[in-house]
C-alpha cells in the first residue's frame, strides 16, 4: 500500500507517484487524441448548415407529417421481399455456417494446423464486412435485385453464426462423445448422436437471433439497390417525398419491433 511521508505524517494514497503519473499521461494522451479527432471533424463540417439545422429539422418534420398513409398499398411487395431476403438469407447462411463451425471448433476440426485457420479466416472476413458492402459488391457482380440481397445477407451471416456455433461446439460435454465412441460408432455416427443433440438448442437460438438481426439489415439493403423496402425509401428520398419517407420509416420500425418480439418469444420457448 503506497504511503507517503508528508511533514512527518503518513498519508495513505490509492496509488504510488509513478502510477499516478502514468494515469495522468494516459488521460492526457486520450484528451489530445480526442481533441485532434474533433478538430478533424470540425474542419470538414460546414458550420453554417449546422447552425441552420434546427430550422431544417423543423422544416423536414413539417413536410413529413402526416405520413402518406395510402402509400402503404404499394409497400406490400417490398415488405414481402424484405421478409424473403432475411429468411432465405438466414437459411442459406446456416447451411454454410454449420460446416465452417465444425471445421473451426478445436474439438471437431480435422486439422488444427491447416483447416482451422482457414475456417477462422472465413469467419472473420465475413463478419467484419457489413451486409451493405456485401450487397454493393454483389450488385456489381450479379446485378441489382432481391437475389443480390439474399446472397449478401447469407454471406454476412456466415461468420456470425459460425462463430457462435463453434463456441457452442467447443463447450460440449466430452464424456457424452466419449461414450458414443466407446460403442464402436463411426465418425459420422458420433457426430449425429454425440455432438448434434448437444448443440441443437444453441443452433436454434442462433438461427432465430440472426433472423431478427437480418430483418433489420434487409430493410436498408435497398438503399444500394439490393431489393426490399429500402428501395422505396431510397427513391422517395431522391424525390424528397417526405410523407412517403415517414411512412416507410414507420413500417421499418414496426418490422424491427415485431421481429424482435418474435425472436424473443421463440428463444424463450426453446430455452
Amino acid at each position: 500500500m503506497p504511503v507517503l511521508e508528508r511533514g512527518g505524517a503518513q498519508v495513505w494514497q490509492r496509488r504510488t507517484m509513478g502510477e499516478r503519473l502514468v494515469r495522468w499521461i494516459g488521460w492526457l494522451i486520450g484528451l489530445v487524441v480526442f481533441a485532434v479527432c474533433w478538430q478533424k471533424i470540425s474542419e470538414s463540417t460546414t458550420w453554417f448548415f449546422v447552425w441552420d439545422a434546427p430550422r431544417i429539422a423543423g422544416d423536414i418534420w413539417d413536410r413529413a407529417t402526416p405520413p402518406k398513409w395510402e402509400y402503404i398499398a404499394r409497400l406490400g411487395r417490398p415488405i414481402w421481399d424484405t421478409l424473403n431476403i432475411a429468411t432465405l438469407g438466414t437459411m442459406i447462411s446456416l447451411c454454410l455456417a454449420v460446416p465452417v463451425a465444425f471445421l473451426a471448433a478445436r474439438n471437431t476440426t480435422p486439422s488444427a494446423l491447416f483447416v482451422r485457420p482457414v475456417a477462422l479466416l472465413i469467419i472473420v472476413a465475413t463478419r467484419s464486412i457489413n451486409s451493405l458492402i456485401w450487397a454493393l459488391l454483389l450488385i456489381a457482380i450479379i446485378g441489382p435485385g432481391v437475389f443480390a440481397g439474399v446472397v449478401a445477407i447469407a454471406i454476412r451471416s456466415i461468420g456470425f453464426c459460425a462463430k457462435l456455433l463453434y463456441e457452442a461446439i467447443e463447450e460440449i460435454d466430452a464424456t457424452q462423445v466419449e461414450a458414443i465412441s466407446a460403442t464402436g460408432a463411426s465418425r459420422w455416427q458420433v457426430m449425429a448422436y454425440g455432438i448434434v443433440p448437444q448443440i441443437l438448442p444453441a443452433f436454434a437460438g442462433i438461427a432465430v437471433f440472426r433472423w431478427d438481426i437480418n430483418i433489420r439489415e434487409s430493410t436498408v439493403l435497398g438503399l444500394v439497390g439490393a431489393g426490399g423496402i429500402g428501395l422505396q425509401l431510397s427513391s422517395s428520398l431522391n424525390v424528397l417525398a417526405w410523407p412517403q419517407v415517414s411512412l416507410i420509416l414507420l413500417v421499418i420500425l414496426a418490422a424491427v419491433v415485431i421481429s424482435e418480439w418474435v425472436s424473443a418469444k421463440v428463444r424463450g420457448a426453446i430455452i
Binding site: 478533424k40 471533424i41 470540425s42 470538414s44 463540417t45 460546414t46 448548415f49 449546422v50 439545422a53 431544417i56 429539422a57 423536414i60 451493405l132 433489420r216 439489415e217 430493410t219 436498408v220 438503399l223 428520398l237 420509416l249 421499418i252 420500425l253 424491427v256 419491433v257
Partner: peptide, 24 residues
C-alpha cells in the same frame, strides 16, 4: 436501438449536411 445506424445517418445528413459530423 430501434433505429438503425444507416437510417439515422440519412436523416442527420439531411439535417446537418454531408460530412463526418453526421456520421459522428
Amino acid at each position: 436501438r430501434a433505429l438503425q445506424e444507416i437510417i439515422v445517418a440519412i436523416l442527420l445528413v439531411a439535417i446537418f449536411g454531408f460530412g463526418p459530423l453526421a456520421g459522428f
